[in-house]
């Protein structure tokens, strides 16, 4: 049983479907049933049953489980990932190996690695530098981003992603930071003057792997395990390609809707990263005992 929160045309569903199809085609007497759109568990309620073996697989933004393993907060940390190829190198690095060790403590393992990117949308103006969010009511995706944006002088408002559209329309919100796919699926472009997408450099990368319960995996036959690994390898390559396309797709949708498109320069990126070091990195290091070691591992990836 595989659970996730997305609809059938989301790439994360397609990744899960691909693994399920490959495993089915391998004919190893293993059938993966996919429960999408939170039909089994709510988005943030998936990690606990996964870790206790009540759920077999899930596609999950790992930072959702940051409350159980604070180290996971590094998988949604501003400025840690520069672009999709860098993200792929991170996934294969000692940094990820260290995180996988943490997952093993919860009886969880990774089948498919993958990062998705996102950007900023402003109701009245472009957001590229920290100064731009000063005094704006902002909704951020993720704890570390909230800390960084608060550090930039933004006012943080927390609400469900389904409320964003109305909140921007009525003016409760003036800026939003979320994933490229959410920007499109919630039609945020209708309420936006300027969009800052993930481009050559991007601030917002979220690690969203396909996870599996480790004991369940180890209880499978050798042939079944191999089929899963083969399917996962194929899906991972697809995931990376599609993740890149998704950013471009969101830019097209916003541009078609007549929204101004702004680009973040490497200097802007550096300014955000400096700010993040003072805010979210600092808070992370205070919270996680071996945080510095993990952060160094991540920063060491070229």
């Amino acid at each position: 049983r595989l659970s996730h929160q997305w609809s059938n045309n989301d790439i994360r569903h397609k990744v899960a479907q691909m693994v399920a199809d490959e495993v089915a085609a391998a004919n190893v007497d293993l059938d993966i049933k996919i429960f999408g759109s939170q039909s089994l568990f709510k988005a943030r309620e998936q990690y606990k049953p996964l870790s206790r073996g009540q759920l077999d697989m899930t596609v999950l933004p790992l930072s959702y489980a940051g409350g159980q393993q604070p180290a996971y907060n590094l998988t949604l940390m501003p400025g840690l990932v520069k672009n999709h190829d860098h993200a792929a190198r991170l996934s294969a690095s000692p940094f990820m190996a260290a995180l996988e060790e943490k997952m093993a403590q919860d009886d969880v393992m990774v089948l498919v690695h993958g990062y998705l990117a996102g950007g900023f949308a402003g109701k009245d103006k472009c957001i590229t530098r920290p100064e731009d969010v000063q005094g704006l009511q902002t909704r951020a995706a993720g704890k570390a981003f909230e800390q960084m944006l608060a550090g930039a002088g933004a006012s943080i408002a927390s609400m469900a992603s389904s409320e964003i559209y109305n909140a921007m329309q009525t003016g409760v919100l003036q800026a939003v930071n979320t994933s490229s796919s959410s920007f499109v699926s919630y039609r945020i472009y209708e309420q936006t003057k300027c969009y800052t997408p993930a481009g050559d450099v991007a601030l917002w990368f979220m690690y969203q792997p396909l996870l599996m319960n480790k004991s369940t995996f180890e209880g499978l036959t050798e042939a079944q395990q191999q089929a899963l690994r083969d399917g996962a390898a194929k899906a991972q390559a697809y995931y990376l390609e599609e993740a890149k396309k998704e950013d471009a797709e969101s830019v097209k949708v916003f541009a078609d809707a007549g929204v101004e498109i702004a680009q973040m320069t490497p200097e802007d990126f550096a300014a955000w990263r400096e700010l993040a070091k003072e805010t979210s990195y600092k808070a992370f290091l205070e919270e996680v005992a071996d945080g510095q070691a993990l952060l160094d591992l991540a920063l060491a990836v070229e």
């Binding site: 005094g135 009511q137 909230e146 608060a150 933004a154 006012s155 943080i156 408002a157 927390s158």
Partner: peptide
């Protein structure tokens, strides 16, 4: 806090 003082609301929702 949010509308009148334009401040951050971090803990209230939760």
């Amino acid at each position: 806090i949010r509308y009148v003082l334009n401040g951050s609301t971090v803990w209230q929702t939760e």
